[in-house]
Design a protein around this nucleic acid. Structure first.
Lengths: 208, 208
DNA sequence: CCGACTATTGTCCTTTGGGGCAATAGCCCA
DNA sequence: TGGGCTATTGCCCCAAAGGACAATAGTCGG
């Protein structure tokens, strides 16, 4: 599973500047893609591929912060490094709070830029690793039938089969059957593992 | 358990400014404490009490960011709201990344200040609630004897009693005895609950 | 209409987990 | 030195979970 090499997406309406930055990042061995507007990035950004965004703040059309917000709405969590000559403190604070990896000001020292991009790519890789683990989990859990899901929820709350049977209005034997299916579909080797899965999926644990 | 009312700790070397800010916060109903330097705050800050810090950046002696760092080293996670007239973007970015609740610039609109303080206090309350829950858990788990802890670790990994007995070189009956003690001391009503506790305490889950 | 999937249950047997009762042993503190 | 705590174990019994074999029924897509 050799992951695609990560790409740094540079979004800036200033063509000469884009080129200059590309040169720096090229020289540092990064794959680079250029966009002259936020809209262009939204249209072309390949989903699901590793990378990060190097983003200007002031641009015609969507601004950098607006693009950040838009991406968040779309559920796209690509790390963003802001790089601008027209920033102010409130803007930088807002950007970082919204999850930006960094907020640099032009002119920027080459090492600062490269370091920020590197951190952004590292974070992206970690997020992806984490997400794909969760996705695998969700995929398994989503194979459960509605009934099995109910049993699953009660099992990880520590309920006994007989209690579950009572709550669901079925026979204990039936619960056992579902429970087996749950363990099988979730590929859990033990109850402890199943509970951990539920926990990672954020399933509430009210024992009641 | 009526918690102590939260206190806003104002750290600024400018006396008139301190007084002005105190007035604003007093008027909003907050308890306020004043300090003219970071050192004074470090010396007097009551540990374990709810509150937040309203912190200037440039001061004689320890600077605001240095105080933030020092508090982090001490494990004190009181939310900090920076309020300064001499800030710049890198500084604000660094402060927020280091966990500051906000980074405001003088002069600040009264509502912005009050809103930031309110968010800081809310965050503090949440952290405290979360921490005290964890502390309760740790207190229970710390009552386990070394042997019981070993059994605990293996149980939450989904090991069977006989496997645990094998790994510890004791009889299965012995494991059962320890296991009982673990459930009792941890006040866990079910294995699921025990696993959740281990999870919240960050105990690794290598099933091996 | 048929096969696949889901939901349900029954019976029976085995493996595990949970506990009561009791005893042996080492250690530490008063 | 004696009580208290920890670690160990044996025996016995009951409850709970796991799983084999088998069967009935309803739903749904072909």
């Amino acid at each position: 599973m050799a992951a695609t090499a990560p790409t740094v997406h540079i979004v800036d309406d200033d063509a000469p500047f884009r080129t200059a930055v590309r040169r720096v990042l090229d020289a540092s061995g990064y794959r680079v893609a250029l966009y002259d507007s936020a809209e262009q990035l939204l249209a072309k950004l390949p989903a699901g591929e590793p990378g990060c965004i190097l983003l200007d703040v002031r641009m015609p059309g969507l601004s950098g912060p607006q693009l950040q917000e838009r991406l968040a709405e779309l559920g796209n969590r690509v790390p963003i490094v802001f790089l601008t000559g027209h920033g102010d403190i409130p803007m930088s604070v807002q950007a970082i709070k919204a999850g930006a990896e960094d907020f640099l000001t032009k002119p920027v020292a080459r090492e600062k830029l490269v370091a920020a991009v590197e951190r952004a790519l590292t974070r992206d890789a970690q997020q992806r690793a984490h997400d794909s683990e969760l996705d695998g989990l969700r995929a398994r859990v989503s194979r459960l039938t509605p009934r099995e899901s109910e049993v699953f929820a009660l099992v990880v709350r520590g309920k006994l089969n007989k209690q579950i049977a009572g709550e669901l209005g079925t026979a204990e034997r039936t619960v056992k059957a579902h429970r087996q299916k749950v363990m099988e579909k979730c590929e859990a080797q033990s109850l402890a593992e199943l509970v951990r899965m539920a926990e990672r999926l954020g399933m509430a644990a009210a024992p009641e």
